[in-house]
Nucleic acid binder design. Sequence first.
DNA 1: GATGAATGAGTATTCATTCAT
DNA 2: CATGAATGAATACTCATTCAT
Lengths: 197, 197, 197, 197
Amino acid sequence: MSPRSAKQFNDIRKQKKELIMETALELFAENGFHATSMSQIAKKAGISKGLTYNYFESKKEILEELIQSGFETIFETLDENKDGIVTKDEFVQFIRHNFSMVRKNLQHWKLFFSLLVQPHVADTFSQEYKTMAEPVFLMMFNFIKSQGSDDPEGDLMAIAAMIEGTFLYFVVAPEIFPPDVMEEKVIRACFKIINNK
Amino acid sequence: MSPRSAKQFNDIRKQKKELIMETALELFAENGFHATSMSQIAKKAGISKGLTYNYFESKKEILEELIQSGFETIFETLDENKDGIVTKDEFVQFIRHNFSMVRKNLQHWKLFFSLLVQPHVADTFSQEYKTMAEPVFLMMFNFIKSQGSDDPEGDLMAIAAMIEGTFLYFVVAPEIFPPDVMEEKVIRACFKIINNK
Amino acid sequence: MSPRSAKQFNDIRKQKKELIMETALELFAENGFHATSMSQIAKKAGISKGLTYNYFESKKEILEELIQSGFETIFETLDENKDGIVTKDEFVQFIRHNFSMVRKNLQHWKLFFSLLVQPHVADTFSQEYKTMAEPVFLMMFNFIKSQGSDDPEGDLMAIAAMIEGTFLYFVVAPEIFPPDVMEEKVIRACFKIINNK
Amino acid sequence: MSPRSAKQFNDIRKQKKELIMETALELFAENGFHATSMSQIAKKAGISKGLTYNYFESKKEILEELIQSGFETIFETLDENKDGIVTKDEFVQFIRHNFSMVRKNLQHWKLFFSLLVQPHVADTFSQEYKTMAEPVFLMMFNFIKSQGSDDPEGDLMAIAAMIEGTFLYFVVAPEIFPPDVMEEKVIRACFKIINNK
DNA sequence: GATGAATGAGTATTCATTCAT
DNA sequence: CATGAATGAATACTCATTCAT
């Protein structure tokens, strides 16, 4: 009842919640949302089935919070850089950072890609993704334009597709093209596209 | 002896089977394999649940035949062209043909992307997909090389990613970039990547 | 329409019916009544599912006719001998004949034993069996008595149990005790029981 | 932590499991394994279908545990006596004990007989049954030999068949011959078979 | 907060039976 | 007489969710 113990309770809650979410993310990413049962999550997290419902209203809510937290994780560090891109170096850093973020959060991305093609699982997801991705597009657009591209919008399309496709390869088939090599090739290709006269 | 001729029975079987497959494809593509129930398929197809099993051994078999037919639909016309790519024009035609096939079979591609990310649904799928995509990669590689690229493998990676990403946009978010425009931009970007000195 | 073709039709009907019954008996005996489907019967008999219902009202009716025909098959040849047993030789012949009948109709007996323990499958079966077995018991009782047994009823019980048990071994575990040997031993034991002073 | 103590949970589990097994045994024995549905078991036990699967992995597992527990119930008390049979009295006690066990566990025996005749239900069952019955045979064989029988193996066959047949009468048709009387007659017959000169 | 027994609606699949031809 | 497409009720089993403790 003392403020301190209240804080402790809060910490416990927060930790348990994170534990459940991490466990769920692993299972969702590995086996898919539908193929993962609440029992599995509870068992793997080492808690009882009932307790899960103390922290989340439903299985779907776990998914939704996971999506939310995924967006935050992925886009939070982008925010810092995104406004000031001017030089090529900064753009390259930005791209590299993106790639690095994907590789660090492969499971989130796996989950995202699986949701992309199942709109009914999370109707809100698609819209939200676009909303959050938009500033990134905008920033890239501005940079491309600043480099003197004669068709910045067209170049953006090509580059955006290339990056999205790279992410997909990272997640789904890293053995086809080695991610490290791919990163270099893609960056080089970006500049070929932008600076071509 | 039989009052309905063998041909009649055959026709009925063929039509019903196609009906079931089309219905299943729509639902799988829209909601995912796991989230689609046999009841839904039967209901939407206007037949009884039991009848479905007169034509398919299991839900998984529907998926497998769908994958098979998808592969055939998509890759059959590619086979014709694939051996002789030499000129730029032929390469462009080839790419356009690819794009066109994807846009004509959006549902199949939606299904394919969803399967790529849920390996447990059809383990064989991933391998088969790669097997069928390989000749395409090879052909593109040869063309890139023939154009005097100083890094054909690197260029292939970039282009492959760009095309894969384009397919993903086509399927998942055609409203972000208009497919028609995108097609042109991507083709142009291909040549920028290849021919850059 | 001529009497001759009418007879032919009848013959065909009879043959088809027998075909279905034989096929069903094999499958029932091998896999059990519930585990055997009408499709299996039709397929194994080489006819269509629908045709089966031209000859039998239901799956249960096949079973019932099978039971009926089994009783007839088994008891018909017993009828000839049963009234006149006087000498030991005739009794032995009678027992041997019984054993021989069981071995010739193992499938029927397998079916019978499985029904014995599932009364609800065929409620009438149990009663009918007893009715048909009664004269056999009676005849044996009379013979035992005629041999001067001091407890004919008791001896009958023991012998009846021994014979029933032998049938069960024949059907279920012929590899434990060889049927041929067993036959001799059981006959000898019968006389030990009856003639013991 | 938990409001219901571990012991409480354990007690609940034990009781429910027994309830389910008893209910299932009754239904299996009465109607057969295949003809009994999980719904029937749940309904008769007064619980939900789902709960059944909280205690047993499958319908087959219920059967297997039932068989196991049946074997234990039936053979556990035999173990005590089985090594030392020497005198006639001990042999008689042993046989009586067998008969008594069967009459006390009629349901189990009904189930066993039905399984004997439907090998596909539980392939392991048949083997296991024979394995457990073997020491009983062996012991009887030794006793018969010790009594100076001139054909111990032959006598064993006859006696084993008689006892098996008696069990069958006990279980399937106790109204034909009164079990109490039958027991006496069969025991007497055993000695007639063994001691006959 | 924490447990796990309990529920009930849902899932894929089977199968006896019907019926148009 | 004969076919096999079609039905619908039933089956074993799963699982998100509730709730008494």
